[in-house]
């Protein structure tokens, strides 16, 4: 469903992402692991068509992100950063509806969908209140609903649990698992090993813009003969940088 083909991004004299190739199937959660500045966000932003690759490309649902960015956007939902922005003066419903409408949904379908999401995410109590005074957890639910209101096949999540408390992070992890059950392809970046171990079917470790290794968690553990993913990770990026 998602295929990266030697994708790269250069900002002036910094090669942020270098020749990245891998693919993610529907119903799979792919974890992008790396230190801060390793190129995770840049990779996800390229997939989201927010940044243009300087070399290579990627396809989402068979559509080229460079040649058909507008078409690609139909199929993706993004959740970037722990505390994604909302319009404080609009209600939760209005915030979600705005994005639904911009994604071409009609009023009936939208209402049905928001009611459904509000139920699954347990937002019924505050769905018609203005989001300005919401807690972080409540806002998090609204941003999740906003990201999937148009039922995209591919979810791109950039460190979605950063800055969230335990309960809110858990809500999000449940949501990610649910996406897999619905057959969506999920790519999410993180540097929290426990979260990655619990959720991901496969992981790719990137360091200084390059893919260091890729595989299932168990596969990588076996390959490097270490039962601790964190140590595998340190060994991989440490080995490269030393």
């Amino acid at each position: 469903m998602v295929k990266l083909i030697s994708i790269g991004k250069r900002f002036k004299d910094v090669q942020a992402v270098d020749d990245l190739s891998f693919s993610v199937k529907g119903g799979e959660i792919f974890g992008l692991l790396g230190e801060n500045g390793a190129g995770k966000t840049t990779t996800l932003r390229m997939l989201a068509t927010m940044l243009k690759p300087t070399s290579g490309t990627a396809t989402i649902c068979g559509l080229d992100i460079v040649k058909q960015p507008a078409e690609v956007r139909k199929h993706i939902g993004i959740l970037f950063g722990g505390e994604a922005g909302l319009y404080d003066r609009l209600t939760a419903r209005e915030n979600i509806a705005y994005f639904g409408k911009l994604n071409g949904m009609d009023d009936n379908a939208l209402k049905k969908r928001i009611d459904e999401l509000s139920q699954t995410l347990d937002m019924e109590e505050f769905i018609d209140r203005r989001v300005g005074k919401f807690s972080k957890g409540m806002k998090q639910k609204v941003t999740i609903a906003r990201a999937i209101v148009h039922d995209p096949e591919v979810m791109l999540l950039d460190e979605p649990t950063v800055g969230l408390d335990v309960t809110a992070a858990r809500t999000l992890q449940d949501f990610i698992a649910q996406c897999r059950n619905q057959g969506k392809a999920v790519i999410f970046s993180s540097h929290i090993m426990s979260e990655v171990e619990r959720l991901c079917d496969r992981i790719g470790i990137i360091h200084k813009g390059k893919l260091v290794d890729i595989g299932t968690i168990d596969g990588l553990k076996q390959q490097y003969n270490n039962s601790n993913l964190e140590e595998v990770f340190i060994q991989l990026i440490g080995g490269k940088s030393a």
Binding site: T49, I76, F80, E83, G85, L86, L102
Partner: peptide
């Protein structure tokens, strides 16, 4: 304001031209 609130990126990732 959209930049400061962090709403610009999700907004641009929708299908709005």
């Amino acid at each position: 304001g959209e930049k400061e609130r962090g709403t610009l990126e999700p907004l641009l990732a929708t299908q709005v031209s």
